[in-house]
């Protein structure tokens, strides 16, 4: 089981850079950067993280092809892949529908088909080939990049069944989030789709990013409870059905990776048994984020 660090663009650099450096030092595998649409730009932020780290992989977790021109996603990936000397991973997802609708002025349509075309377009262009898209949702003619880079892997951060199946068909990895029972179903959907597409499901890297809280004192639980309030409304129906009728504590343990060190160790073991190869240690971390990262990194990071 690998550990990675989750950050978001709403975090000021003075908060995130010490965590990024610590993650690198304590052998975390990756840094995933979540995008807050109205905050700092995810690609500029990753440019800074690339410059300030040396060996840890860095990725968008996620950015949306529904709000960015695909040529710009491609040329941003090329720049960061070059700047990071091949450490970049492109995480794509739809993003929150209300936020995306506000950004583009209407509710996105044809989501699965558009995402599939975006992934295929980006894979082709980032391999150094020329690509053309002529559809109602994108019109790009004979596009290629001026520089060649090692093509980054493309992960999908998705939750609905059709998007999970798409990930099984086309993605190098999947970033999952949600309660454990949902995650089991979601992994099965990805694996089945992969097999149907003639792929080996074990080749698809599976990452879990749920809110993470190391609980050292009773009051730390409030940090996790806040995250439940944030996460619950955005859960897809497939996940929500596993949360109906649950009490406060059960919701906490379903939506967050939280507990004392021993409890977290047990949860990581459970996730590993479910087929996940990576856990993202993301906000809010715990009362002292640096100590949480260090403690976990020293135990898990150094194993890899």
């Amino acid at each position: 089981m690998r550990l990675s660090l989750g950050l978001t663009t709403s975090m000021p650099l003075e908060e995130s850079l010490p965590l990024a450096r610590l993650a690198e030092k304590t052998n975390y595998s990756r840094i995933w950067l979540g995008e807050d649409l109205n905050g700092r730009d995810v690609f500029a932020y990753l440019s800074v993280l690339s410059s300030e780290t040396e060996k840890i992989q860095i990725g968008t977790g996620i950015t949306s092809p529904f709000v960015r021109n695909w040529a710009v996603i491609a040329n941003s990936c090329a720049g960061i892949q070059s700047l990071s000397q091949g450490r970049f991973i492109l995480g794509l997802g739809v993003g929150g529908i209300p936020e995306i609708s506000a950004a583009i002025g209407h509710k996105p349509k044809g989501i699965v088909s558009k995402m599939e075309k975006a992934v295929l377009f980006l894979k082709k262009v980032l391999k150094g080939e020329e690509a053309t898209i002529n559809s109602w949702y994108a019109r790009i003619r004979n596009f290629s990049l001026a520089v060649s880079v090692a093509p980054p892997q493309i992960y999908l951060g998705v939750r609905g069944p059709r998007m999970l199946a798409l990930a099984g068909r086309v993605a190098d990895g999947v970033i999952f989030s949600g309660p454990p029972k949902y995650l089991r179903e979601a992994v099965n959907i990805v694996d089945d789709a992969a097999e149907d597409a003639g792929r080996d499901p074990f080749e698809i890297d599976k990452v879990v990013w749920n809110p993470f809280v190391l609980v050292e004192k009773e009051e730390d639980i409030a940090l996790a409870a806040d995250m439940v309030d944030v996460m619950l409304p955005s859960m897809p129906p497939l996940a929500k059905k596993h949360l109906e009728g649950l009490g406060k504590n059960e919701l906490l343990s379903n939506i967050c990776i939280c507990g004392d060190f021993e409890e977290i160790k047990d949860q990581l073991t459970d996730y590993s048994r479910m087929g996940f190869s990576e856990i993202v240690v993301g906000p809010p971390y715990g009362r002292e984020p640096e100590r949480t990262l260090k403690t976990l990194g020293e135990v898990y990071g150094l194993r890899n």
């Binding site: 730009d41 690609f43 500029a44 990753l46 440019s47 800074v48 690339s50 410059s51 021109n69 040529a71 710009v72 040329n75 941003s76 090329a78 720049g79 960061i80 070059s82 700047l83 596009f143 290629s144 990049l145 001026a146 520089v147």
Partner: peptide
């Protein structure tokens, strides 16, 4: 900035650094 060039953000970060 041109669509086929690397985006100005990573280039600017490299130059600034």
């Amino acid at each position: 900035e041109k669509p086929k060039f690397m985006h100005p953000f990573p280039v600017a970060a490299a130059v600034a650094n």
